[in-house]
Design a protein around this nucleic acid. Structure first.
Lengths: 205, 205
DNA sequence: GTCTATAACGAGATAGAC
DNA sequence: GTCTATCTCGTTATAGAC
């Protein structure tokens, strides 16, 4: 007799409820923020895509600020899972940086802006808890990169002037800017070229 | 007896009409787009700041798209005037690049985002003529930078791998990204450090 | 050229039935 | 949990007086 929380062989999809409503809302909302911005989409847009009513959305997320916060939290969670996966799979610092840049490229291939880059542009108009989450996301990115940079400098695979922290910031801003500018052209190559050049400038001796 | 259009010693301010209404609208609108985004401000915001009614704004700019187009045109005009001034005052390529970065820094010190960087983020939601103007602005920036880079490489004051065009794009995206990320922190130093590092990587042999 | 007044619509949000 | 119905407010935009 299965105890509570015991895993079974039956995958969640067998529930005939592929994804709970809350998760589907977050998925659609995330994409809309990345493509149109937080000020560029409405509850009606989300409801329309999910064929449900605005009122139902408000049951799951009472205010748009609640929805926005949850979108960032989900995004950040997945992003840092991806960074943990990179840490688990790769040890060579330059390879980690390439994998990091590839995360951005994947977002751009989906015709989206980095969620937090988009929200950074809209910073002055978003709810304050969302602001804090954006800054936290950027800080955590820099910390992860700084650790990689420090490691790479130590083993000679990377070389750069200044602190690892400052260089980490240059990487974040360089990649965010490359996404920002590449998107109006619909040209992922623009991003890839800029990213390649940016990482090449950190090549070890 | 003064002929038409002949210049007088009386400055325009003596007209007791310091700036025509149209120009004041554009000035306020420009700042609002740079701070809050095109989707983040309304005719009511502009009207409020100028102590006039929304209806009067519509007399000067029938639609918000008209206003947006005019804002970009004015901004681009002033920006390229500034580039022409740089060309007139400086010949050393690295000095020109520093002056170029300083234009960005000045915008950021005013707590604004680059107009076209902001509109690049909102790209998918802005009127099509505004989109074209944004891309044109980016193209013209790259052209100017590419010319400076080409010149600097020729006289040995600059050194970089790849074409001047690709490197120009890296500069634009690097500076735009540095602005984007620095603004949530309200920290101009973040931008300055990133810009310095970016330009230093182009130092000549 | 600026105003009052208002139209027409979409936004975020709530009440209450099912 | 999802719906219908509605509220309130803000938005872009227009008509017409001054």
């Amino acid at each position: 007799m299965p105890r509570m929380k015991e895993k079974t062989a039956i995958p969640p999809e067998a529930d005939f409820e592929v994804q709970p409503t809350r998760a589907r809302i977050l998925e659609v909302g995330e994409r809309l923020v990345q493509v149109r911005g937080f000020n560029g989409f409405s509850y009606a847009d989300v409801a329309g895509e999910l064929s449900m009513t605005k009122a139902s959305l408000h049951y799951h997320f009472p205010t748009k600020a609640d929805l926005g916060e949850a979108i960032i939290a989900r995004y950040a969670g997945r992003f840092f899972e991806a960074l943990a996966a990179i840490d688990g799979e790769l040890t060579h610092a330059p390879a980690k940086l390439s994998a990091y840049a590839e995360l951005y490229a994947d977002v751009l291939r989906d015709e989206r802006m980095c969620l937090c880059g988009m929200l950074a542009a809209e910073y002055d108009t978003i709810p304050s808890r969302m602001r804090d989450a954006v800054v936290g996301f950027l800080d955590d990115n820099e910390s992860w990169l700084a650790a990689v940079l420090e490691h790479g400098r130590h083993d000679g695979s990377l070389s750069f002037a200044g602190t690892s922290s400052v260089t980490a910031r240059s990487i974040v801003s360089g990649l965010e800017g490359a996404m920002l500018v590449a998107r109006p052209y619909g040209a992922v190559e623009r991003f890839e070229t800029a990213a390649k050049q940016l990482l090449a400038s950190l090549a070890g001796t």
